[in-house]
Computed example of a mutant assay.
Amino acid sequence: MLLRWCKFAIATIDTLTEYTGKLIAWLTLIMVVLSFSIVVLRYGFNLGWVAMQESVLYFHGIVFMLGAAFTLKADGHVRVDIFYQKFTRVQQAWVNLLGGLLLLLPVCLTIFFISFEYVLTSWQIMEKSAEAGGLPLVYINKSLILLLAITLSLQGIAEILRNIIVIKGEQS
């Protein structure tokens, strides 16, 4: 019963992360087109708008902050470990399990709790860009910090459960 619940939780979190990853892929394309447009307008027609330039920064924030969980799911984070690659699957699962429990989740929780007041204050004052003509959405952009902690924690939990299943000898 517990194994079935773990597999359901893993599948649910993985599905959420996959949808987020697909959204981020499209947002990345939009960001590239927007960046190209800014360059063409600026250097080709001597036109530019602060809001348009800031929107690229917002897209970068979305892509990097929300992309972290998808990268974790895809096992795309950088590993500099000469031993890990030679470990058995169970040994790798132990390293991943301990890393998730002792490093990933505590860091995510710390980011969330340290940033909560910062983001809340930004929402309370409905923080806007300091630049004339800038976007009035700084508070939404700062909310990405909390979303990073939440999505990365969720995917971390899925990875922890997946590694427990591997250690127990079940296939995920």
Rank of each mutant, 00 (worst) to 15 (best):
S55M: 14
V119N: 01
G44K: 09
A130E: 10
A130P: 09
V39M: 11
T12P: 02
L101R: 03
T151M: 13
S115Q: 05
G61V: 14
R79L: 13
K168Q: 14
V95L: 07
F64Q: 11
E170Q: 06
Y118E: 02
A25E: 11
V119Y: 00
E18T: 14
S35L: 13
L161T: 00
L72E: 05
M65W: 13
G134V: 00
K22Q: 14
L72I: 01
G61I: 14
I167M: 09
P106N: 11
F36W: 12
F70I: 04
I38C: 07
E18M: 14
I165R: 03
L29V: 15
I157S: 05
A93H: 07
V119L: 02
V80A: 09
L103A: 12
Y19F: 15
I165D: 05
E117L: 03
I150K: 00
L105N: 04
L16F: 15
G99W: 08
V166Q: 03
C6M: 15
W94D: 06
L101E: 04
L103N: 05
A158W: 09
A69I: 01
L47C: 00
A74Y: 02
L144V: 10
F116V: 04
G100S: 10
A69H: 12
L34M: 13
Q155C: 05
R89L: 12
A51R: 04
T12L: 14
L161G: 08
L97H: 09
L161W: 07
Y84E: 06
G156K: 06
T12R: 04
L97W: 10
M52Q: 08
S55K: 02
F70V: 09
L137D: 03
W26M: 12
I164C: 14
C6L: 13
S35W: 06
G99C: 10
T20P: 03
G76F: 04
K142V: 03
A130V: 08
L72P: 01
R42A: 11
V63G: 03
I111Q: 04
L105D: 06
N141D: 03
M126N: 12
S153W: 03
G133W: 07
S115E: 06
I30K: 04
V90L: 05
A132F: 04
W26S: 13
I125F: 09
I150S: 02
Q91P: 09
A130F: 01
G133V: 03
T28N: 06
M126C: 01
L97Y: 11
L161M: 15
I125R: 08
R79M: 08
A158P: 11
F70D: 11
T12M: 08
G99M: 10
D81R: 07
N96W: 06
Q92I: 07
L105T: 13
I13C: 06
I111T: 11
I157C: 10
Y58K: 01
E170M: 02
